[in-house]
Write a protein that binds this DNA or RNA. Structure first.
Lengths: 229, 229
DNA sequence: CCGAGTCATTGTTCTGGATCAATGGCAGGC
DNA sequence: GCCTGCCATTGATCCAGAACAATGACTCGG
């Protein structure tokens, strides 16, 4: 897969001139030099890949938001995560995608074939290290998800969700969330009614305000943080 | 208890390429060529590494069972996973361990320094690919954990847990679990009482029998599988 | 402007698992 | 053997959030 590469280097020493990635709206230390990838546009609700399809590519959000989810045996939909600009998704250990991915609004996605990534890794050793780090970061995010689901109350889940989204979207007080209440519910493992009720309660308590249903203003961030402990 | 500094200094002088790995009970395609790692023994309940400590090593279970867990802000303990012979744990993206690891019974663990792994990867290219795959497998296991916690009933969680453990331990009908009811509860996000009650109920329904409290016989595996859907 | 469809909110009832509490088994120490 | 402490089981009560139901707000196409 990603042959001839060093792994687990503690520091990233990529010379800036090599990393060519003009479309990226966010360039972080964790960025891979993905020259040669294909930039695609997806309309609202469009499927980027589906559960069970062959997993040949790695994906990166250039702009917009993406949700990845799985349909469980009992028919319920579990949203595994929301992915913002600069974030990667679609990593698989096996040959098939275990989840589906859809654009939340309209979204621009960079798609890189795994075989192509392999070639890049052969030229630039620390690419393998970065891939490993991305996978472990995904693991950690999933473990945070587990911690969130374990015993937390609806209020703690929603407050933590808002803070997480605000941080990752680099939002100030005002937070525009492109997902529906159903999406939030399927991510937080609550019902749509409980999400709605909890948001109303947070507004009644003055911690947030909701000028439009998908715009949330964090009025008292400190109190929200206290709420998640 | 083992001081971490001992482990770390000792591995520095191991000549690469000569040491073998005789104790390994499982050798699969996913195995890394970990010559030069140090094999350590841990007594029941001994800490292998602690939350917040520097993460310099990768760990592999040679024999025995290991639990990894985090103490959450509210003081609760979330068990992230149980690790059996042949499985890896202790992967971190950052410099510090986000979890603690303890031996469940007595356990033998192979410890490899990340820097040493780096050297191996430089000689053998597919090591990087294997590390990536291991990380993604950990991610998938965590996502299964999320699916299990989301909306499943106590009964479904316990039945699924028993089947998962039986499969990974390669057990037939008879399953010897080295962990306490509290460990199961902290993994499944239930209380110890609910775990106990559920096991009793499964026994009353004839799906399992419990000759000793830590030995569980799967009397009707099909019904257990139906239960998790 | 209207009508249809989607999404969000709010009220009511009900249930699964948490919590509190008490008892029962089993192992190790003396 | 008995005591002590830990772990597991079982019972009773309570509560957060699910499920059901109805209404209200917003959007888009015509």
């Amino acid at each position: 897969m990603f042959a001839n590469s060093q792994i687990l280097t503690a520091t990233n020493t990529v010379p800036a001139g090599l990393a060519v990635f003009p479309q990226a709206s966010v360039v972080s230390d964790d960025d891979l030099p993905l020259e040669g990838g294909q930039v695609l546009h997806f309309a609202k609700g469009a499927e980027i890949f589906g559960q069970g399809e062959r997993a040949d590519c790695l994906y990166k959000v250039v702009s917009g938001w993406v949700r990845t989810y799985r349909i469980l045996r009992d028919g319920r939909r579990q949203i595994e995560g929301f992915h913002l600009a600069g974030e990667y998704f679609g990593m698989e250990a096996g040959a098939a995608h275990r989840a589906s991915a859809e654009a939340l609004g309209s979204a621009t996605i960079l798609v890189v074939r795994r075989s192509h990534l392999n070639e890049i890794a052969a030229r630039q050793g620390d690419v393998a290290a970065t891939l490993f780090r991305l996978a472990v970061q995904g693991l950690q995010r999933s473990q945070e998800h587990v911690a969130m689901l374990s015993h937390k109350t609806a209020c703690e889940r929603v407050a933590g969700f808002l803070l997480d989204m605000a941080e990752r979207a680099d939002a100030g007080k005002r937070l525009d969330l492109p997902m529906s209440r159903q999406d939030m519910a399927d991510y937080l493992s609550l019902t749509i009614e409980t999400v709605s009720r909890t948001l109303s309660q947070l507004q009644a308590d003055g911690l947030i305000s909701i000028p439009q249903s998908r715009t949330i203003v964090l009025e008292d961030r400190e109190a929200l943080e206290d709420m998640c402990e």
